[in-house]
């Protein structure tokens, strides 16, 4: 267990030190070869690295796009996985079964391939534009835009989210739904007042994992997104490899981390609340 802590916790601590301008110890080599390092000027380090970052319009553009893509994709994923879960839970036909089976497929497709498949499907001479052209229409090329990144993020996140939400919905006993129908509630109301609250833990988990995953994603925006602005995951890699500015790269990682941590706190809260209610049951 210590090993686990060591291999994740230690590098994170180390990089936090780097963003604050501590260039000694194990950070020495990276600080030596890196450019644009702002060294510590207080005992706790320096905020100069972060200040430089936030005054950079490029970073702000990236941050904005990252947030938009994350929010939009998460909402779409949530809505779709709810729809899927409801179809599977309430409909139960053959088509619902098939849907339940097909929807997990992207989970087993390596992300690189997902990205590439979506690239060819929605790209300049891809399927979507081919069909449109055959119909005499001019469809936009979605690749290298934010929209392709959103499509890709939805595509890759959907299986996990819908598995979670579906299993949440499946665990609601039939009798609880029947009782509401017997009480005179129409389906839409049952979904809203009975099913959603009872599956709320799974919904929150799905939201958290989806948004955190998209927030720090690299492969999808790398293949599908525009060059500028791009998502922070790609920009971190650019700053690290192409521009050799490790301090900024790692600082960006911490910015993402702050957002992710906010989401994570909501998640932990939901979990604790969940186990508390179960403990009482």
């Amino acid at each position: 267990m210590l090993l686990i802590i060591g291999f994740i916790g230690f590098p994170i601590a180390l990089s936090l030190a780097l963003t604050l301008g501590f260039t000694g110890g194990l950070n020495q080599i990276i600080a030596l070869i890196g450019q644009g390092i702002r060294p510590a000027d207080h005992w706790w380090g320096t905020m100069a690295g972060y200040q430089a970052l936030f005054s950079d319009p490029r970073f702000n553009g990236d941050l904005q796009q990252t947030i938009i893509v994350t929010v939009v994709s998460t909402i779409v994923v949530l809505v779709l996985s709810l729809a899927i879960a409801l179809i599977v839970r309430l409909h139960r036909g053959r088509i619902a079964q098939l849907l339940g089976a097909i929807i997990v497929v992207p989970m087993f497709v390596p992300v690189v391939i997902s990205a590439w498949a979506i690239h060819t499907f929605y790209g300049g001479d891809g399927f979507v534009r081919s069909v449109a052209a055959l119909l005499g229409l001019q469809a936009p090329t979605l690749t290298s835009t934010m929209w392709a990144v959103i499509i890709g993020s939805v595509w890759t996140s959907l299986p996990f989210a819908s598995l979670l939400v579906t299993s949440g919905m499946q665990s609601i006993p039939d009798a609880l739904i029947d009782a509401a129908r017997d009480a005179g509630a129409p389906m839409s109301r049952i979904v809203r007042t009975i099913m959603l609250p009872l599956a709320s833990t799974q919904l929150i988990i799905a939201t958290t994992f989806t948004s955190i995953g998209i927030l720090g994603s690299f492969t999808i925006p790398y293949f599908l997104g525009s060059n500028q602005p791009t998502m922070l995951g790609v920009e971190i890699s650019n700053f690290l490899n192409a521009y050799n500015r490790p301090q900024q790269a790692v600082a960006m990682a911490f910015v993402i981390f702050v957002f992710a941590a906010g989401i994570a706190i909501a998640y932990v809260r939901a979990n604790l609340r969940g186990s508390a209610t179960e403990a009482r049951a």
Binding site: L215, L232, P246
Partner: peptide
């Protein structure tokens, strides 16, 4: 803590891991 570490973007983790690995 483990969950938090998981929330840290992988690419950032790798960046600092790279520092460690160089060393």
């Amino acid at each position: 803590g483990m969950f938090a570490a998981n929330a840290f973007p992988k690419i950032g983790l790798f960046a600092s891991l790279a520092a460690l690995f160089y060393a």
